[in-house]
Write a protein that binds this DNA or RNA. Structure first.
Lengths: 131, 131
DNA sequence: CCTTGACCTTCCAGTGACTGGAACCCTTAT
DNA sequence: ATAAGGGTTCCAGTCACTGGAAGGTCAAGG
């Protein structure tokens, strides 16, 4: 299978697939004309990567997860630890965004949003405490 | 005032201050020895930038916001529009992260996390639907 | 006067995870 | 013969910094 079809079937763009080969996440075979030749295992790996990335795991996490996936003697504790750490990061990000959201939505509500220059958003950014 | 003190007082790192000058967000004066010389207005701008960045505005948004801040004839509607658009983005990000969080926390809960290899997290990433 | 240490300067490279584009090769159909 | 639609490599750009090297400046202490 060529890269285009793989991209279609896994949802991972060709560019990204080439990039993943570059950084050693996959190692597709080559045909005599130099084209990449993808087997089922490559498809499977790419789908795995796509899902892991969609869950927000970093590339390095994905590398580790793939290694664990292919290791029959793994301890599930390692996987769980990685996932839990990632979950904690997600929670932190959510909390940070919610903090931003709270401040910003308050400011947006306070701003008249008309043709006059008075603006509590700019006042706040300028250092005047918003009420 | 030199860059170090400005960094301390605004909370914006020296490196970042130099970067902001580089991209034209601030234009501090120079003393004869080549050191940057910061006035109160520069401090004020940097604090403004620090707060805007903390709210997650992009650098380009900050540029626009600063221009509006310094424009006495601005229409607050423009500021509000920018802030609202950013708020929408934040909401999208939060939603995306909460989606990840939901899936991941479910998987983490399902995983025994012991010395055995069985792991619903990897099963799911590998394409076997999680229950 | 010399040195030490804490500043400051510029410039270049790297981060993460791609993405866009140029320049070129291969295959198939018309 | 040629055109379309694949594929290939390689280089540059994204965003907002951050780290580090190599060197200039300044105030204090010996």
């Amino acid at each position: 299978m060529n890269i285009g079809e793989v991209a279609d079937r896994t949802g991972v763009p060709s560019k990204t697939i080439r990039y993943y080969e570059d950084i050693g996440l996959i190692t597709p075979a080559r045909t005599t004309n130099g084209y990449r030749h993808f087997r089922e295992t490559d498809l499977h790996k790419l789908s795995f990567l796509g899902r892991a990335r969609a869950l927000g795991f970093t590339i390095e996490d994905c590398r580790t997860l793939m290694a664990l996936y292919e290791d029959d003697t793994r301890e599930s504790a390692k996987v769980k630890q990685l996932a839990q750490a990632h979950l904690d990061e997600i929670d932190q990000k959510i909390a940070q965004l919610q903090g931003m959201r709270a401040t910003l939505s308050h400011l947006v509500e306070c701003c008249a949003g008309d043709d006059r220059p008075d603006c509590p958003i700019l006042q706040d950014l300028g250092g005047e405490p918003a009420e």
